[in-house]
Write a protein that binds this DNA or RNA. Structure first.
Length: 187
DNA sequence: CTATATTTTCCTGATT
DNA sequence: AAATCAGGAAAATATA
């Protein structure tokens, strides 16, 4: 799975000289956390390090690490701090963008704080990490050029079809009449 | 191959 | 200033 754009990977590689697997994703939407941890092949090499102290301490480096960590649902405090459970696994195989967003919203372990309910009853949600969302969507579509700008254009088209309704707050969307499968009781 | 739906890409301009 | 929002236009992709 591709988890970084080319430019980001170049930036990271130029800065780390580390031995972690370049193509490893820690929050692969197609793979659960249990899979990740039970499979040594996907167990990241730098996980065994005590943090990121082997990186140099420039602002650029920090930004690169943050970007990488965000896109992979990691915190600099360590992967183990993530409270990721293996239950209610969803594969996030949804073919359409709105279904992908919906399923991400419905699966906390893959979500990792990228999306957040604003009003569960009304189906209002907020995009917390726009870049990470775009990367995940790009990963799903095997398109490393995906950006939030382009993703949001696609979301805006949903206003016409009633899949989404407009909410006049930045990064906030609402499921419309033609969106299904997001309601709590209807699960 | 045709047609349609769903993005993706790009763009200009407005808003926060 | 940098992100985000609004849509138009057109290319790309997938599927029936």
């Amino acid at each position: 799975p591709l988890s970084l754009s080319h430019s980001n990977r170049v930036m990271l590689d130029s800065v780390t000289h580390s031995t972690f697997l370049p193509n490893t994703s820690f929050c692969d939407p197609l793979m659960s956390w249990t899979d990740l941890f039970s499979n040594e092949e996907y167990y990241p090499a730098f996980e065994h390090q005590t943090g990121y102290s082997f990186f140099t301490d420039t602002e650029e480096t920090k930004a690169a690490i943050k970007d990488y960590a965000d896109s992979n649902c990691l915190k600099t405090s360590g992967i183990k701090s993530q409270d990721c459970h293996s239950h209610s696994r969803t594969s996030l195989q949804s073919s359409h963008l709105w279904e992908f967003v919906r399923d991400l919203l419905l699966s906390p372990e893959e979500n990792c704080g990228i999306l957040e309910w604003e009003d569960r009853e009304q189906g209002i949600f907020r995009v917390v990490k726009s870049e990470a969302l775009a990367k995940m969507w790009g990963q799903r579509k095997k398109n490393d050029r995906m950006t939030y700008e382009k993703l949001s254009r696609a979301l805006r088209y949903y206003y016409k079809t009633g899949i989404l309704e407009r909410v006049d707050r930045r990064l906030v969307y609402k499921f419309g009449k033609n969106a299904h499968g997001w309601q709590e009781d209807k699960l």
